[in-house]
Amino acid sequence: MSVSRFNRRDGLVVAAMLGVPLIIDAAFIWLPALASVGLSFTKWTGVGGVQLKSCDSLPSVPGIPQPGCLNGVDNYSQAFTTYPDFWPAVQHNIIWLLVFAGFATPLGMLFAVVIDRGIRGSRIYQSVLFLPVMLSLALIGIIWELIYSPNYGLINSVIGRTADDNLIDWLGDPSLNLWALLVEASWRQAGYVMILYLAGLKAVDPALREAAQIDGATGWQTFWRVIFPAMRPINIVVMVVTVIESLRAFDLVYITSGGNPLKGLELLSVAVTQNIVGETQRIGFGSTLGVILLAISLVPITIFLYQAFRREESPK
């Protein structure tokens, strides 16, 4: 059916159903996002307006921040060269993504498969494993501080490493802290993925399973050859969620290090936050980092979504 076949009333209904969400999305998400792209070429403390003049042409009084001004691509070159957090952040984001894709997400899927098989106590498992997703950031911060604290924390107390000469500094040591945080993050991510896959698995036609079993397939084969492909819509959702959550990862680091990321915990989104939402803001520079983050995340997702949706459109 095509749009042209709608009658007048249907046309209005469709217009409203599309239009209202679109306007909200455009006004409050995309418009600010585009403005941020513009801001990424400026230097601005967030106070007063931005003048459409080059920063070089404006006077600079020591101690008084310059009014907002155009800074060309200086922010970008600064990000790649002088800003010490940039490259570590990129590296950590990649590690984060790899751990999510290679560990947390498969673990969540495993949970879902086991629960979906109707294991005894599945309700309890499902609830407990999903629990971390429901907790507020403040609570998660407190919980893990109690676990990782060097002198009083659960881990060091249990393994007897709380003395000054042998303690393990889980959150401070740059070779450990990213991994400590990834444990927290996986703790949350696995439950999230589990719920999505549970929804997916429940939607798979049981007849598929039975047919596979009649053909003599093992449980393993049945899952990978029959059920997993049948969950394609959910697989796409999970993939997108995994990428989004790895790139957007910021809250755990933020709550752990109180705004200033400890060495070893630099992430792009944390760097954006630090510059934009701080006591003194480097809006221009922070926006630059945000635009870079956006570009990195948009490219693969757009390609993937386009492929995924287009294949669905074409007749099978």
Binding site: I29, F250, V291
Partner: peptide, 8 residues
Amino acid sequence: PQQVIITP
């Protein structure tokens, strides 16, 4: 990311 759109 939320931070990117917050200023505008």
